[in-house]
């Protein structure tokens, strides 16, 4: 996939760092990475900036990942925006619900470059 701007949404700075590193190791080393620590901050940033994909955790304070994705789908600007979920909390039911929200996939933590390539292909 051609991903020039990637937004990473996760309350853990460590997790954001690992996700960014995995994308870079998967071939997306030329991409620009934006970071937000919860859904609210991500929504605010997305109002100002256009990105090619959002990579989000589910378990976050203030606005969790599922609510964040639902809100994205309600906005004209982001209703078709590709979303990839990265979480330690996934389930079949959640996966089905998220697939209905046009989510590209769910990657279970710990994140690895191989898992990025599996879902998105090499950068």
């Amino acid at each position: 996939m051609d991903l020039q701007k990637i937004m990473i949404v996760d309350d853990s700075a460590t997790s954001r760092m690992i996700i960014k590193r995995c994308f870079q190791m998967a071939g997306y080393q030329d991409s620009t990475f934006l970071e937000a620590e919860d859904g609210l901050k991500a929504m605010s940033e997305l109002n100002k900036t256009k990105v090619d994909i959002v990579v989000t955790d589910l378990n976050m304070p203030k606005m969790d990942g599922a609510t964040f994705i639902k809100k994205l789908r309600l906005m004209d600007k982001t209703k078709e925006l590709p979303v990839l979920v990265i979480s330690s909390m996934g389930s079949d039911a959640m996966e089905k619900e998220l697939t209905n929200s046009k989510v590209l996939g769910i990657i279970r933590k710990p994140m690895t470059p191989e898992k990025v390539v599996e879902v998105l292909g090499e950068g």
Binding site: S12, A13, T14, S15, S87, S88, R108, K109, P110
Partner: peptide, 15 residues
């Protein structure tokens, strides 16, 4: 940074 790193590890270990 140290605390966040260790907490994320435990979060993933528990999951």
């Amino acid at each position: 940074e140290i605390d966040d790193c260790l907490l994320e590890l435990l979060n993933i270990l528990a999951g």
